[in-house]
Structure formats: C-alpha cells, structure tokens
Design a protein around this nucleic acid. Sequence first.
DNA 1: TATCTGTATTACTAATTATAATACAGATAA
DNA 2: TTATCTGTATTATAATTAGTAATACAGATA
Lengths: 129, 129
Amino acid sequence: MLISLDMTGEEPLYLQLRNAIVLAIGSKSLQEGEGLPSVRQLAEDLGINAMTVNKAYTLLKDQGFIEIDRRQGAKVMVTREAYPHFPERWQEQFTLLIAEGHARGLGREELLEMYETLCNNLFEKGGTD
Amino acid sequence: MLISLDMTGEEPLYLQLRNAIVLAIGSKSLQEGEGLPSVRQLAEDLGINAMTVNKAYTLLKDQGFIEIDRRQGAKVMVTREAYPHFPERWQEQFTLLIAEGHARGLGREELLEMYETLCNNLFEKGGTD
DNA sequence: TATCTGTATTACTAATTATAATACAGATAA
DNA sequence: TTATCTGTATTATAATTAGTAATACAGATA
C-alpha cells in the first residue's frame, strides 16, 4: 500500500490518509483481516505526527472499516454495525455526484460510461474480484 | 424549488443550500437560464442570514453552476470555464464513493443496480430529460 | 426618492487541523 | 524482569478556517 500525501493542498492530512485506505480496501489491494502499519510506523514513513495517523485510524474504526486491537494494532475489518448510516448517507452523496455530472453536461449514457470506466480503473488496481 | 434545511445537523447551512440547488439543476427541476430568488428573499424564506445565502450563491458561481448579475440577481448558467477542476476532482470523489460501497460489501452488480436506481430517482424528479 | 439587486466590511464565536510532549495500559518477546 | 512493541488518553499550543451575523455601500431600476 503506497500512500503519498499532499502536504500543501487544502485537504486535511488525516482525511487524505483515511481516503487512501478506503480506496485500498475498496479495490481489494487491502484485504479483509490484513494488518495496517502501527500509528508510529506510518507516521514516521509519511513524515507526519503519530496523532494525525491515530485520528485517521479512529475515523476508519468509527466508520466500520477497521478494527483496532491494542495488542496487534489495526486490521481491516469491515462491519455494518459500526456504521449504521450506510447506505443512506452514501446514497445521498452518490446522488449528489450524479447530479453534478449531469448538471455539467454529461448525459445518461456518458454518465454510465464514466461510471463503468471508474469502476474498472478501481477494480483493476486490486486483486481478481 | 422546495428547499428545507436541517438547522440542527452538522452540515453547514450554506452547503446544504448549495447541494440542494445542484440537485435541482442536475435533475432539471431548475433549468438553464432560470432565475433564483434574491439572497434576501431566500434568506427570509429559509429563516437564515442573507450572507449565508450569498455564500452559497458565490460558491455556486465559483463552481460554474450559476451566474450572478447585480441587477437581475442569480440565474442558472452552467459553464465549464468557471470550474476547470471538472472532471478530475469529480472523478476522484466518484471513485472514492464506489470504493466505499464496494468495501462495504456491494458487488459489481449490486453497485450497478444501485447506480441505476439513484439515477432514476434523480431524473424522475425533474422534467423529461 | 424609494426600493430592489449583490457585496464588501467587520465582527465574533466556535471548531478544525496539526503538532508535540508525555504518560499510561496492556501485551509480547528477549 | 526488562525492554519493547501496540493503541490511546491527556494536555498544550498555534494557526487557520468555518460559520453566521449585522451593517453599510454601490449600482441599477421604477
């Protein structure tokens, strides 16, 4: 899992990190049960503070993407119970993005093509799923 | 265009307003060239401050969804020049949402179904497009 | 002149972001 | 036992941004 952060952009570091990990899980390049680096290790690798990594991990835990064991560290474990807002909140955001694309001139077919292209790009990064 | 804001939620009022208008444009229930209420009028209707409405309008303008004429007020006018970040930024967000859905257990077919359902829901709100 | 536009200014509070230094609890391995 | 890993709680600090609001101004219009 290669993660690079944009230190100059406006997106918070902990969010960039959270998103990178969600992308990795979604593309199966991080698999269920797989362990994540320790907060200190990852912080050192990325050149950021350990508490910033901890913030990302805690967020991922609260959103049901990982579990954290004080002994072994964090590992991928997607659970539905931890995040009951799915799929309602997700659908809202999804609909909003579709609306944005359509408003900007993408027709139904173009939207569908775009969707499929993005899906393919995402899935070919990971394993055979 | 019926807009209702959640005054107690954590989502900022100006963002809720911006999103509601983008949804309306995307579903064609607000059409190209159609005028929006004045900032004061809308602020009064919604029971919020006029500058909050202005912030939403300014954001919509900066993102290329509306044009603002000091004389006539704001009207829907989607332009590509005003927002050169499309489609790159949009694709990133879209991909992230797909990844979230997939990570939470939606397979490729389920994702596609979900996509089509959301599309249909969105488009049937507006006109015949 | 009265009344609409949007908007610039200013203000104020609250929250966010990131970092840092410690310290602690628990587990593990030498 | 000791050293060394985990995560995490605590506290602090600093800079920045967010969010909302009150007010006044400029320009256009009727």
